[in-house]
Amino acid sequence: MIKFIGAALIVLATTWVGYELARVLRQRPRELRQLKSALQSLESEIMYGQTPLTEAAYKLAKQLPKPLSHFFESFAVKLSGGETTVKAAWETSLKLVWKQLSLKQGEYEILVQFGETLGQHDRLSQQKQIQLAMIHLEREESDALDRQNKYEKMMQSFGFLSGVLIIILLL
């Protein structure tokens, strides 16, 4: 009896791990898409509204779903607090939410680099910076989608099957 319960627990645990890994794979392209749309809104705020960064960030925080909204909110709060630079506020906010995001180091670098240019230029160069960041993110997105297609299903079955393997070995 105990054997069965143990076996069931093992299978449950490994399946769960598999699903979790698959979720990360699924989550990454979604977050990248949200990030891209955030940059797009930022672009229109800058180009047409000439909205100051703080306000723009508050607006973005309202539009976006959760982990990203926290990012923009903390960015806006830090900026309006003063006594900081855009770069520092952007980077610390990014670090704050990074754990909750499924994004990778590559995206981190892109975002940090983008943060350095924010608010430092006139409108046209600002737009160019945004578009540059968008292109980088797009590349990451297609990579993320690729990985999702390849590995998502595999991870799910891999979890379950590895559980079964452990049980067979133990029996």
Binding site: I46, P52, L118, G119, H121
Partner: peptide
């Protein structure tokens, strides 16, 4: 530099006309 950023609320792009 900081003063300019403070005045522009960290958004130089919003000050194009003013600059």
């Amino acid at each position: 530099r900081q003063l300019l950023h403070h005045i522009s609320k960290y958004s130089l792009y919003a000050l194009e006309e003013e600059l």
